[in-house]
Amino acid sequence: MAYIIFLGLFGLVFGMIGVASNPSPYYAAFGLVLGAASGCLILSGFGITFLSLILFLIYLGGMMVVFAYSAAMAAEPYPEAWGNMSVVFYVLFYCVVLGMGLGLVDSIDVLSIVGEFSVVRSDWGGVSVLYYSGGWLLLILGWVLLITLFVVLEVTRAVKYGSMCL
């Protein structure tokens, strides 16, 4: 389990560097997805499984939308990937900064992660029981989301000739 958390922490740092080093929005969104997924992995490693699942579904769902928008709006003919010179410069710069930071804090021992891994904590587990014993509730919730979609479409459909003219 310690290795999985290490993998998550590594992915988090890797993904954040991937975002911060100014590549094209395509790849920056990939970096965000990687960072978010790694964060969820760390949370589930600590036993906060339900929150991890919620974050994975909602945050990554939103992230996908952001990615789709940025890809649609900023489609470049020659996107800058992580292999390009400017990006590589930033990557190296951030790695050096992180290494220096690690050197600073490693000696004073604040990065220690203590035990109690791999248990489902009861407070968040209780929320998931709501959906475990009431699976039909999920169906109704899905129906409500569908209704909301229809309502929004129906309300904004006639914007051109209606009173909500923009």
Binding site: L141, V144, I147, T148, F150, V155, S163
Partner: peptide, 22 residues
């Protein structure tokens, strides 16, 4: 569930109200 039913009612009522868009 009682609350959810009320919300579904409200949501479903709105397109009927705004149908004419005046």
């Amino acid at each position: 569930l009682a609350w959810m039913g009320l919300e579904i009612n409200t949501l479903a009522m709105m397109p009927l109200m705004i149908k004419q868009h005046h």
